[in-house]
Design a protein around this nucleic acid. Structure first.
Lengths: 139, 139
DNA sequence: AATGAAAATGCAAATCGTTTGCAACAAGTG
DNA sequence: CACTTGTTGCAAACGATTTGCATTTTCATT
């Protein structure tokens, strides 16, 4: 789909102001390939503008989440981590040794979930699938 | 498998003392068909013994989790919820309107997950699959 | 049944991640 | 450039959970 959404325009259209902290956070999210938590975003932001506060990071993440611009993930034992909502839907495999997050997608799996919910008489609003594992040593 | 594990014996074998609070909590867990959180367990426990403290509930849940006697689930937005580890593995469908938790199991789904992890070069330690949905109105 | 060492408890204070009230401030309109 | 309103930074509040510590319990031993 849209590989490079123009979040700044989207925000403006949504009627929210394009402030300095927001621009900086948006930039950071765009450049992040990992899944940073609020504190990590805050630390990166402070390097660009020392006056940014952690509260604003949290407020901005909530705003962006509401606008569908970022996804919030609450992996086991740890603060929420974020990723910008570019790209397509995927699930996550968390490396228990490094904390690294690997994204994957399986259409079969998606359909299977829907089928299961359907059999239980439910419509899925959203779902959460996380695999926690360790790199297989050797081949 | 084991439909009625004798947790009291297991605890003793594990070298932990069978105290009054622990017996009460174990009893509550055994009788709970829902997935109570620490506060709910605490409230039920207080009815049996008014001197129990919330801290002990938390400590006991951590202990039981470590012994594999209970599973801890951190569903979206809310405190951790627990269930005793009887029965077989299953995943959860959370009713967004009522908060009710419905358990389900799919061997196909389990195998699919393993296959995906395998392709990524990982061994799954455990996983978390939660479907969030609403009851389909009508047939 | 009485003894004692070790473990477990209750309480309150501390912690972590996150949210909020409020006065000062900045964005976008005209 | 001024005004209106949204947004910020700060610090205090928050909910869930954990912890330090003095006091109680458990349970193996007498």
């Amino acid at each position: 789909m849209d590989q490079h959404r123009d979040y700044e325009s989207e925000l403006r259209e949504a009627g929210v102001r394009l402030t300095k902290p927001r621009k900086i956070i948006l930039k950071i999210l765009g450049e992040s390939q990992d899944h940073p938590d609020a504190m990590a975003i805050f630390r990166r932001a402070v390097k660009i503008d020392a006056s940014i506060s952690l509260a604003t990071v949290y407020r901005t993440m909530k705003l962006l989440e509401g606008l569908g611009a970022v996804h919030r993930h609450s992996f086991e034992g740890g603060p929420a981590r974020f990723e910008h909502a570019d790209g397509e839907h995927h699930d996550h495999l968390i490396d228990l040794d490094t904390g690294r997050v690997i994204e994957f997608h399986s259409e079969t799996l998606e359909r299977l979930q829907e089928q299961i919910a359907d059999e239980l008489g439910y419509d899925i609003e959203h779902h959460r699938l996380e695999l926690y594992g360790r790199k297989r040593r050797q081949r």
